[in-house]
Amino acid sequence: MSGLERSILITGGSVRAFAAEYADRKYPKIQALVLNAGLQFPNGVTYTKDDVESTFAIKHVGQALLFHLLRQHLAEKASNVITASGTHDPAQKSGLPDAEYTTAEELAHPSAQSATNSGRQRYATSKLCNVMWTYALDKRLIAAAARGGERYTVNAFDLGLMPGTDLAREALAISPWKWKKVLPRMIPLLRRLVHPNIHSPEESGIALARLAVGEDVTGVSGVYFEGTKKINSSVESHVVGKQEDLWYWTVKHVARDGEELRTFDSF
């Protein structure tokens, strides 16, 4: 995960370089594509070298670009998994500020007012984008399959809170230490006292692998999973107008010319 995160922080061109190298090496078709990257930036708005707000760039824009570039390398019934989070849903009371989607353009280039939003709020909103983009892509895949075209699946996955990862490495000095060294030893207690959806990276990894390649989920698409369970995502994630705003802004932003735009938006 960290390698992809770092490359997007440098430039979206790094994603293109990876995709080009992948094509050059002539690997077998991709059976399962997992898009998983994310960081929190608690100390004010930061931007990538592509001039996109960093949380949104890492968690959504770079991942969407990678999907579009690797799409031609997907197997006939490839599984695509987008890692999201329960933090996108205010009803789950995760402790993060509520996600709030206005437009994709506002997330990419915050106004003076939205720039004052906390980094944790921007993180929750980026997770909402993951779920909305999953639904927007699934709708297009359903239409493509009906015409005899691509038959991929795509699902959103909440891996839960995972103490011990590098998620908090941009936080203040003491927070990463607690996150990396103390909280992983307290997972059973945290599940009882805080929230049941707290896991070790190993536990979440097993659930993620099952969703990506498990026989029992073959053909399942357009679903939000919390671990191994199908659950409802937030009310806002189902707003079609917001899904479409995100989809069209994204393809227009990541496409480098008209031909690529037509390719990215053709299903």
Rank of each mutant, 00 (worst) to 15 (best):
G3I: 05
R6T: 14
S7E: 06
G12C: 03
G12H: 02
V15M: 01
R16C: 04
F18T: 00
A20F: 03
Y22K: 00
A23G: 15
D24L: 12
K26P: 07
Y27C: 06
Y27W: 11
Q31E: 07
V34S: 04
L39P: 00
N43C: 13
V45D: 14
D50M: 03
E53I: 13
G62R: 08
A64D: 09
A64K: 11
H68R: 01
N80Q: 09
A84N: 00
G86D: 14
P97D: 07
A104L: 01
L107I: 09
L107R: 09
Q113R: 12
N117A: 12
N117H: 12
R120I: 08
Q121V: 11
K127I: 11
L128M: 06
C129M: 15
V131G: 05
A156D: 08
A156R: 07
F157P: 02
L159C: 08
L161P: 04
P163A: 14
R169C: 02
E170F: 04
W179L: 11
K180Q: 01
L189S: 09
V194P: 08
V194M: 14
I198L: 14
I198H: 12
P201C: 10
T218H: 09
G219D: 02
E226Y: 00
E226M: 05
K230Y: 06
N232L: 08
S234V: 04
S237Y: 02
S237Q: 05
V239C: 10
Y248N: 01
A255M: 14
D257L: 02
T263D: 08
F264T: 03
F267L: 11
